[in-house]
Design a protein around this nucleic acid. Structure first.
Length: 512
DNA sequence: TCTGCCTGCCC
DNA sequence: ATTCTGC
DNA sequence: GCAGAATGGGCAGGCAGA
């Protein structure tokens, strides 16, 4: 199949807003697609190449803007896939130059529409209003198999391409080969948010409350002495966390799959900040050098498979029993089972006092809903707010032509002026975007290519989860997960929170 | 060899 | 990660 | 309620260029 055929379907999908119609367009394409190209095109339509990230980012892509497009389409899907293979394989001195050349060549053979498609695909912003979720529906429609069945297979397979091939070529019965088994990582279950523990308990009933650790999600697979560790996105990270391998090897089970969190702990049993955990997690070099000073500890909270039996359809209560029967308590997330809101709230307070980011509340009857934001897991995290001054805003928000991304500053009561603590666009409705675009242009004192700087007069109440060390911002501190709660028309810049306050909050947080 | 930029991937 | 929006 | 879009900060590692 030609790339142009895929691009034209992508356009048709982008043009319609209806999910059913998008699905139909994609299903039609899948029906026409030669079976040996399913593995290439399904990832394209889901928003990323089969090869994943291949070392091409925004800077490289913007340097390609001058390439004249071809007049007529000529690229085959296979050509593109082959070029991506070559790009992915490049490394070492001179590789950036050759990568640029190969990409340039590819884009030079593409029409304007094809160039746009390839650039969006490589940048990771397909923006056709359909990604994996809709593609799954399309696979279901094209194969005549139920969407729930396809979805489940994708969760167990970890990716939609192999499921699409099986469904379209071999049919319904063949989907039974997608089962949970060791070394075949499954998409991890995700959680919804709740505002507080009492709220979560009242939603879920009998529940387990667990510390929510601010580390990195891990899925650990073990068969006999062989162990593999996967990240939340199913990337294999075994080499980065030998401590986890050691713990897993010590578990008295022939075969087991566990879900948990890896985190750097201090000797006193309190957690390091997330930034410190990340010095170890994701590291490939010098792991042994850092190990003594910065050990990583796994804390497990679920068991998905044990000695031949998949557990994902078992209620949480049974999975917990099996987990605690095999894993030492020091490697299980601290937890309490209760339906009593007061007891749960006390446990949550204890989690925060120990330095953790909050708690998870999970229904005891819940199945393990792989890949879904299940209604049976609720996270409760502590958020605080500050009144901060808007220093500037950047163009291009949800709708073109609005000033959306806000620069947030705290008042510097000692030296005067403001200390920037980060940016956010979150929490802004369309209505607020429209209002602030007008307002900020009236306050403009200067601009560059992307940014309008304004008189520091507008105050916003900003929620955040943590203050973290920053190498980027002038005060050496930045807000984590900042979002606007509301504008404070009743406050002026002189009423805004001071940088000294933020420094104090940071000191308290990091001493815990 | 050092530094800055870019990319990928955690949250 | 968080949040908003359309379906 | 789901799916998608839009965008945040930081760390590690690789490469290019001074």
């Amino acid at each position: 199949m030609r790339l142009a055929d895929v691009v034209s379907v992508s356009h048709a999908v982008a043009r319609t807003s209806g999910r059913l119609e998008k699905t139909q367009h994609l299903a039609d394409l899948l029906t026409r697609l030669p079976s040996d190209e399913i593995g290439i095109v399904v990832p394209f339509l889901s928003g990323s190449p089969r090869q994943g990230r291949i070392g091409i980012g925004g800077a490289m892509l913007s340097s390609m803007r001058d390439i004249p497009p071809a007049d007529a389409p000529s690229l085959e899907i296979r050509d593109v896939d082959a070029a991506f293979d070559r790009l992915a394989a490049m490394s070492g001195a001179g590789s950036a130059t050759s990568r640029s050349q190969v990409l340039r060549q590819l884009l030079g053979r593409a029409t304007r529409d094809e160039q746009d498609f390839l650039v969006r695909l490589l940048f990771g912003e397909l923006r056709q209003g359909a990604l994996e979720g809709i593609v799954i529906d399309a696979i279901a429609r094209a194969s005549g198999i139920g969407a729930a069945r396809i979805r489940r297979a994708v969760m167990l397979a970890g990716d939609p391409a192999s499921v699409a091939r099986t469904a379209l070529v071999d049919g319904d019965a063949a989907l039974s080969r997608f089962i949970l088994e060791p070394f075949q990582p499954v998409q991890p279950m995700l959680a919804d948010s709740a505002t507080d523990v009492a709220d979560a308990i009242s939603t879920l009933g009998d529940a387990v409350i667990e510390y929510k650790l601010d580390g990195a999600r891990i899925q650990v697979h073990k068969v006999d002495d062989e162990v593999k560790v996967y990240s939340r996105n199913l990337r294999e990270v075994t080499a980065a966390v030998p401590e986890v391998v050691t713990v897993a090897r010590g578990i008295p089970a022939r075969a087991i799959v566990l879900d948990g969190e890896a985190i750097a702990m201090r000797e006193d049993g309190t957690p390091h900040p997330f930034q410190i955990t990340m010095r170890r997690f994701g590291r490939r070099l010098d792991v042994d050098r850092l190990r003594p000073d910065l050990p990583i500890t796994p804390f497990f909270f679920d068991a998905l498979y044990l000695d031949g039996e998949p557990l994902v359809d078992e209620p949480l209560a049974r999975r917990m029993d099996l987990l605690t029967a095999r894993v030492t308590a020091s490697n299980v997330v601290p937890r309490v089972v209760t339906a009593n809101p007061a007891e749960a709230a006390a446990f949550a307070a204890q989690a925060l006092a120990t330095g953790h980011e909050g708690v998870m509340v999970k229904a005891l009857t819940g199945r393990y809903a792989a890949g879904r934001r299940g209604q049976t897991w609720l996270k409760v995290k502590q958020a605080r707010t500050l009144d901060l001054v808007i220093l500037a805003a950047e163009w291009s928000g949800r709708r073109k032509g609005t000033l959306s991304n806000l620069h947030l500053g705290a008042r510097d009561s000692e030296r005067g002026g403001f200390v920037m603590l980060g940016k956010t666009f979150k929490g802004l409705t369309d209505e607020m975007l429209a209002w602030q675009t007008k307002k900020f242009l009236a306050l403009e004192i200067g601009r560059d290519a992307y940014t309008v700087f304004i008189r520091p007069e507008v105050v916003a109440e900003v929620a955040f989860n943590e203050i973290q060390a920053s190498s980027q911002y002038p005060g050496g501190l930045a807000l984590r997960f900042a979002r606007v709660k509301r504008y404070r028309a009743d406050k002026s810049a002189a009423d805004a929170d001071t940088f000294a306050t933020i420094q104090e909050m940071y000191g308290q947080g990091s001493r815990l």
